[in-house]
């Protein structure tokens, strides 16, 4: 469905732009419909850049990103709007992604209004209420401002806003690193349910091996802008090929809160 073909993103720095830093270096991979892929790497390895390239927040320096046969950077205005609807991103800092001057009701209604999914304010309200209860959120949140809610609530709303658009691919850029363990579990559960019900594809960007292992069928391991290994989750954990992957996988076994509740 979405394919990266030899994509490079480089930045120029220095007075004459003579220094070139490659954030992403000739990366190729593809995501099929209903596939869950994890993008694993430490900070600064270019994994967030990939998430932003795929959502057209950044433009590649070289290479093509193709969505269902269309290069996303050569689309017409109408196609872009369609693409923006099909591919959605969940960000890392849930409390910073909403307009601080907009009430949450308007923030939530925004996608509905942008894509004209509801005909009248009454229908809009009904739809929002329906989703709110589906996501376990209470009505009193709607009249608040973004800074008046907790991180877990904010991330739920962020995901809810995206689900309203029924995207074909969700890109999750470290969606739980800023959250507490118990909230992380809620958000991951939520994402899993959505994947199961809506048959959406997922690109899960994270540095947390345990989270990726639990969420994804396939793992892409990245370091310094390059892809080191693409394999199924089991293979990566049981028989890591690359030295770096071995190092990462080795670390997980070092601390392992083994509890009697695993069963």
């Amino acid at each position: 469905m979405l394919e990266f073909k030899n994509v490079t993103k480089q930045y120029h720095s220095g007075v004459f732009g003579t220094y070139i830093t490659k954030a992403v270096d000739s990366v190729s991979f593809s995501i099929d419909a209903n596939e869950r892929i994890g993008l694993l790497g430490e900070s600064g390895c270019g994994k967030s850049t990939i998430a932003r390239l795929a959502t057209k927040l950044l433009y590649p320096s070289k290479g093509n990103i193709v969505f269902n046969g269309n290069d996303i950077n050569r689309m017409s205005a109408g196609e872009i709007k369609e693409y923006r609807r099909d591919v959605q991103i969940v960000f890392q800092n849930p409390q910073q992604i909403f307009n601080p001057r907009m009430k949450l009701y308007d923030t939530i209604a925004e996608p509905l209004r942008l894509y004209k999914l509801t005909k009248c304010p009454k229908e809009e309200k009904e739809k929002i209420d329906e989703y709110m209860s589906m996501f376990g959120l209470t009505d009193d949140i709607l009249s608040r401002y973004p800074k008046e809610i907790s991180g877990g609530q904010a991330q739920r709303i962020a995901i809810m806003r995206i689900i309203m658009l029924e995207p074909k691919l969700i890109i999750a850029d470290e969606p739980t690193t800023m959250l507490d363990v118990s909230v992380q579990a809620q958000i991951l559960r939520l994402l899993q349910n959505i994947m199961d019900v809506n048959k959406t594809a997922l690109l899960f960007v994270s540095h947390d091996l345990d989270v990726i292992r639990a969420m994804c069928q396939k793992i892409i391991v990245m370091k310094d802008g390059r892809i080191l290994e693409i394999n199924t989750t089991e293979e990566v954990f049981e028989h890591p090929k690359d030295e770096y992957t071995k190092f990462l996988v080795g670390k997980t076994n070092l601390y392992n809160v083994q509890s009697v509740f695993t069963a």
């Binding site: 363990v181 118990s182 992380q184 579990a185 809620q186 991951l188 559960r189 947390d208 345990d210 989270v211 292992r213 639990a214 392992n256 809160v257 509890s259 509740f261 695993t262």
Partner: peptide
Amino acid sequence: ISALPQNGFKA
């Protein structure tokens, strides 16, 4: 503890 990913993140 059971919400940890390695324990199957039961929320």
